[in-house]
């Protein structure tokens, strides 16, 4: 099945930007196994702004997300279905496997 954006739980629904229409990511992309160590390295670019504690201070927390939610959100920025020029730029050069790696790592921080 195709997964639909946004599939968020209540705990972070308020952090999520609205999106103009359902945004989908193909199953084979969602199925990519994230390289945890690579994700840990790549995550350091994110933690300049997004706090590793998950706090929300003007910039949303991103730890502990379900990997699928994370992957869909990043693809939505990359395809410019979500706004914010910083996020569109950062995701613009992330390959599918890099997004999967980040999803794997940030999920682990919430565990």
């Amino acid at each position: 099945m195709l997964h639909t954006w946004p599939p968020f739980s209540e705990t972070r629904a308020e952090e999520v930007q609205p999106i103009e229409a359902a945004f989908t990511v193909a199953p084979d992309i969602l199925a990519i196994e994230g390289d945890f160590a690579y994700g840990e390295y790549l995550s350091s670019e994110c933690t300049t702004c997004h706090q590793a504690t998950g706090a929300n201070d003007g910039i949303p927390g991103i730890i502990g997300w379900e990997t699928e939610d994370f992957v869909i959100a990043m693809h939505a920025y990359r395809e410019k279905h979500r706004e914010n020029p910083v996020m569109q730029m950062i995701t613009g050069r992330l390959a599918d496997d890099e997004i999967a790696a980040l999803a794997s790592y940030f999920k682990s921080l919430g565990e």
Partner: peptide, 9 residues
């Protein structure tokens, strides 16, 4: 938010 993030980082 960035200021808090980077100084923690």
């Amino acid at each position: 938010g960035w200021y808090t993030g980077i100084t923690n980082d």
